[in-house]
Write a protein that binds this DNA or RNA. Structure first.
Length: 220
DNA sequence: TACCAGGAGAAAA
DNA sequence: TTTTCTCATGGT
């Protein structure tokens, strides 16, 4: 980034989105494991489809690392079919479950410091930076800011940075400007996604956009 | 019908 | 090293 992110601008945008949409109550899931499975399944996929896949895993009594590792990959793929990319995601889920088990499950992973935990997750073939950071923030309440396509699109329109800026640069930029605050990071990311779905896609002319007055191009 | 969704990794250039 | 391609269902 050519310049550091402005803390006041970030907080102003957050306040406007929070006023417009209210608390988002992310991430759906009863356990860290369920949240992490959801993070893999939601890759480039609408959450409504992920919910169907998780429901099918639950119905088959297969929402556990042991069962997923025991079942044939084709069976896992069949169960998660509604989430799309079911063949690659079945393989990724099994890769993740193997590492999850090797590291002692929810409790074992929770004992790792954030840097260590992030590296373990990134070591899984199929878990990239965004998925790992979803897991860190929402499953383990670590102060890690998640950068996704909506963060890039909205921040880009607001003139904060280039959309193709590197992932780590953006993550570090948000974390430095906002300070380590799990609840803020949690809500901020969720609000960006909600705002992106609400305005950026459904209302291309930004009618009634809560960020209109703070957007230099008038189309955030 | 065409497009997109809470990405990542492999292959090609 | 950077860009392009592949994976796939379900809703709008």
């Amino acid at each position: 980034m050519s310049r550091v992110l402005d803390s006041e601008s970030l907080k102003r945008v957050y306040a406007r989105m929070f006023t417009a949409y209210g608390p988002q109550h992310w991430w759906p899931g009863e356990t860290p494991f369920e949240i992490m499975v959801g993070a893999v399944l939601t890759q480039n996929t609408a959450w409504t489809n992920v919910e169907k896949a998780i429901d099918r895993l639950k119905s088959a009594d297969a929402l556990s690392a042991e069962v997923i590792l025991h079942l044939p990959e084709s069976r896992v793929a069949e169960l998660i079919r509604p989430a799309g990319y079911f063949n690659v995601k079945a393989r990724r889920l099994r890769n993740f479950c193997a590492v999850y088990r090797e590291n002692g499950g929810d409790e074992g992973l929770a004992r790792l410091d954030t840097h260590d935990l992030r590296n373990r997750l990134l070591g899984v073939n199929g878990v990239g930076p965004e998925t790992a950071d979803d897991m860190l923030l929402y499953a383990f309440a670590r102060p890690v800011f998640v950068i996704d396509a909506y963060t890039r699109r909205i921040g880009g329109r607001l003139g904060w940075y280039r959309r193709d800026e590197g992932y780590e640069t953006l993550r570090h930029g948000f974390e430095t400007a906002l300070g380590a605050d799990v609840r803020l990071f949690d809500e901020y990311h969720a609000l960006l996604v909600t705002h992106g779905k609400d305005v950026c896609r459904k209302r291309p002319r930004c009618e009634g956009c809560c960020l209109r007055e703070v957007c230099p191009t008038g189309n955030a």
